[in-house]
Design a binder for these strands. Sequence first.
RNA 1: GGGCGAUUGGCGCAGCGGUAGCGCAGAUGCUUUACACGCAUAAGGUCGGCGGUUCAAAUCCGUCAUCGCCCACCA
Length: 930
Amino acid sequence: MAESKIEIELPKSYEPSQIEGALFAAWNDAGYFRRDAAGFADPSKPPYTIVIPPPNVTGMLHMGHALNNTLQDILIRRARMQGRPTRWIVGTDHAGIATQNKVEQKLAAEGKTRFDLGREAFVDACWEWRREYGSTIIEQLKGMGCSCDYADEQFTMDAEYAQAIRRVFVDWYQNGLIYRGLRIINWCPRCTTALADDEVEHADEAGHLWHLRYPLVKPVAGYEYLVVATTRPETMLGDTGVAVNPDDERYRSLVATGAQVRLPLVDRVVPVFADDYVDREFGTGAVKVTPAHDPNDFEMGVRHGLEQINILTADAHINENGGRFVGLSREQAREAIVAAFDELGLLDHVDEHDHAVGHCYRCDTTIEPWASEQWFVSMKELAAPAIEAVRDGRVIFNPRRWENIYFHWMENIRDWCISRQLWWGHRIPVFYCDACGWTDALEVDAALCPVCGAPLRQDEDVLDTWFSSQLWPFATQGWPGDAVSDTSDGAPLVAPGVAPATPKATPATLAAWPELAANYPTQVLSTARDIIFLWVARMVMSSMYFLDGAVPFHDVIIHPTVLDKFGNIMSKSRGNGIDPMELIAEYGADAMRFGLAIQVTGTQDMKFDREKLGVYRNFATKIWNAARFVLMNLDSDAHPPTARVAPEPLTLADRWILSRLARLTAELDDGREGFDFGAVARLLYAFFWNEFCDWYIEFAKGQLAQGGEQRRAAEHTLVFVLDTALRLLHPFMPFITERIWLALPQGDTCPSLMVAHMPCGAELASYIDEEAERSVEAFCAVVTAVRSARARYGISPRQELDVVVKTTGPSAAAKAEELKNQTLQLQNMARLGHFVVAVDAIKPPQSTVSITQGMEISVILEGLVDFDAERRRLEERRAKLAVDFERLEKKLANEGFLAKAAPEVVEKTRGDAADLTVALEQIDEQLASL
RNA sequence: GGGCGAUUGGCGCAGCGGUAGCGCAGAUGCUUUACACGCAUAAGGUCGGCGGUUCAAAUCCGUCAUCGCCCACCA
C-alpha cells in the first residue's frame, strides 16, 4: 500500500473528544454560522431562519434541550448545505423568577436578603450573576455542535430588546389592551409574586373536606346552624357570606328571610344568599364565601356586594385581620382553626377528599389565590387572528394534533396577568404623578410630570418574563430599532426629563423593517409541548398584532418529551435527569444527536436509556472505519478519483450501490416529511451499515483485488458513495462527517462539509437501476444460502464448496446469465470452488438445497453431512411452504378478491402462487432423491 | 368531568389496508488483510380484549381494559 498522506490523517481509532472541539472552533472562526456562511450562501435562494427557544440564563442543558437543539441544528445545517442564507438566532432569557431566586440564594449564603441591598444594587448583582454564569448553556450548545449565530447573541434584557418591550407595552396600554385591576391572582408566597394562570401547575393531593357549623344569628325553620364544607378552613377568617343554590329547597326559607350567620372565632355577622354558581350536590350545598381568597368567591362577592377581607400576608401568614391567629403560617392556622371549631363543638365532621392544588412552576410552593392589584393584558382581541392563522395553515403544528390543544386554549383564553412583584426584569413603564394624578406608559423614562412638573414615580413591578419572550422572533431581528418615536405622532419631547405628550402608537407594517421583512416569517419553531401556551401562542399573537398580521413562523415542531428509561418524566425532584454533557463525553456529540433524532417519531414520547447510545457510538465507529477502508484503498499512483465527480458504474455491484444511493437521496428530499427525523435517521443508518458496509464494501474488495478497470471503478464508486453519504449524514452527525470529509480527495475547493452542497434526488436519479437491484438481490440470496448451509452443518468458512444453481420462472435465462457473470465475485464472497448456473442445470445428489427467488441453489455436501438432518429440514420447509401456498390458493379462489382487489395485487398473488408451486415441486424432487 | 397519546417477539421501538421489521439482550460459529464499538448464521411475534367495515386489517371504525400526558373555578 502506497504511503498515502490521507491515511495518516485519519487515526486508527475514532475518539470524538479529540475532534469535536477543534472542528467547532474552525467552523466558528470561518464564519459559517453567520447568515452569509462566510460567502458560501447563495443570496438568490430563500433565506432560512430559526429562532432558538431562548434558554434561561440560569439554565443548564438538559435532555429536552439536547433533543430540541439537535432537531433545529439538523434543519439549519441541511438548509445551509442547500445554499440558503441561514441564521439560527441564539440567546438567553433573563428568566425573572429563576434568576432572582439564584441571586437571592447566593445572598442568603452571606446572610443577606435583597432588601438589605436595595433594588438597584440587587439588579446589579443579577447582572453580575449573568456575566459570571450566564453563558454556561451557550457553551454547552457549542459542545453539541449547534451551528447558531453566536456572534450575534441576544439577551432579553439587552437595551435594544428592552426597547421592543417598551414599544409593545406602550402600544397596548394606549390601545386599551393593557389595564390594571384588582383581581384574584395566583400568588406564590415563596417568590412573593403574582403568577399567570398557566404558570401554575396543578397536582391532585389527598386532602380533607372539613364540615364546619356556622351558627345562625336567629334560628330559622328549625335550623340552628348551617354546615359548610371547605378544603381550606383557615380562609374562614376572611368569610363575608354563605352561598346556596337558589333552587335548593333546603335553604330556600333561609334566603327568603334574609338569614345571617355569626362567624365563629371572628364573631362577624355575614349574610346567607343564593347564587347559581353553587352546586347543590357538592358537600352540604352551602358554601362559605371568601372573596379575597378564591376566584369564584371573588366573583360572587362582586355580584352580591360582599366585603373583601384579606387575611394573609405576602408570605402566607395570617395578618392583623385574623384576630388571635395573627402571625401563624397558613398551615398552622389551618390546624389551629380546625381545633378551635372542634373545641366549640362546631366541627361537624371531616371527609377524606382529593383535590387539585396549584403549585408554583418555579419553586413548587403551594399557590395562594390572593386578591391584589395587578396589570393584565386583555387577550380575546389578540387571540382571534392567531386562531385564524393556524386554522388556515399559515402556521402549521407538527404533529398536527397539537393544533387542537392550541385552539382549545385560545378559544377559552383569559386575561393575562403580566405584573410580577420582582426586581429582576423589565420594569413596568408606567409613571405616576402623585401630585396631580397624571399617569401614563412611556417609551422613554421621564422624571417630571408633563402637566404639573412634579416628580414622577415609576410602577414598582416588573413584567412577566413571557411578556418579553413573546417578542423573540422579531425583537431579535432589529424590531423596532432605534427609532424610538417613529410610530408616535411626532410629538417632540417636552423637555429633557419631562414626560412627552402621549404618543399614539399604531401597528406598523413589516415593510418598515426591510432587514426583518427579508427573513420573516422564520421557517420553524421547535419546542416542547409545555410551552405551547406560555410562549408559542403568545408569539403568534404579538407578531400578528405588531407586524400587520405576519405570523412569526411557518411550522411549529412539538418534539417528544424525553422520559427516563422507565417512562418517568425527568425532574430534579426525582433525580432521574441525565446530563447531556456527560453523554457527549462518554459517547460523543454525534452519537448523542443521532440517538436522539432517531427516536423522534411524532406520536411517542421517548424513553431514554443512556446505555442505548452505545449503538450510535458504534455507528459512528462504523462510519469511521468504513472511511478508513475507502481512504486506504484509493490508489495513490493512478489519478486518485475525486469524491465529487460522478462515477461511471462498471460492475453490477457499482450499479447497485449507486442506485440504492440515488433512492436514499430522493427519500431525503424536502417536504413536510422533512420533520420525520426518526425515519430519516433510520434510512441513513440502514443504508450506510447494511447496504454500503455489509455488501458494497465486500463487493469492492473483489474488484480492488482484480485491479485495472475493475479497481478504478470500485475506488471511484467507494469514494463517491462515501462522500454523498457524509453529506446526507452531516446534519445529524456534524463532527465525524466533517472530520472524514476533510480527508477525502476533493474535486472542488470547498473548505468544509458544513457549506458543501447537499445532494438532492434529482441529481442522482439517473443512477436508479431496478435491474441491478434485482440481480444483486439474487446474488445475495446465493451467498446467504451458502453461508447458511455452512452454519447449519458446521462447515468451516475456509472449506471451499461447490454450488449448482438452477434458475426457474419467466426470466430464468437472463437470471442465469447475470449470475454467471458474477462467478468470480460469488467465489470470493461465498468461498466457492466450482460454480455452475443454468436454466437446465442438473441437480447434484448429496447436496443441501435452498429454493428462493426463482432459484434452486444446491450446495454440494458430499461426504460432509448427515442427510437425515437435511431430510428433516426439507420436510419442515415443505410444510411451511404448503401452508403459504394454501393461503394463496384460497385467496385466488375468492371471487371477491379477483373482482375487487387491485390488478397488480392479484397479479402478484398469482406470481407468488406459481413460484410456490415450483418450489414445492423442487422440494419433493429433492426429498425423493435423498 | 373532558381531550390526547400508547398497548407489536425478553427489553426499547419502526411499520399504519395486501400474509410482520430494526436495534439490544440471549444462541451458535468466526483473529475473512476497515471495524470484536466487528462479521456470519439461526431462533424468537395468532401486532392488548371483543365487535364491525372490507375481497383483504397490526394497519380503518366502535367498544372495553391497562398505562401515561394535558385541560377543567365544584367549595
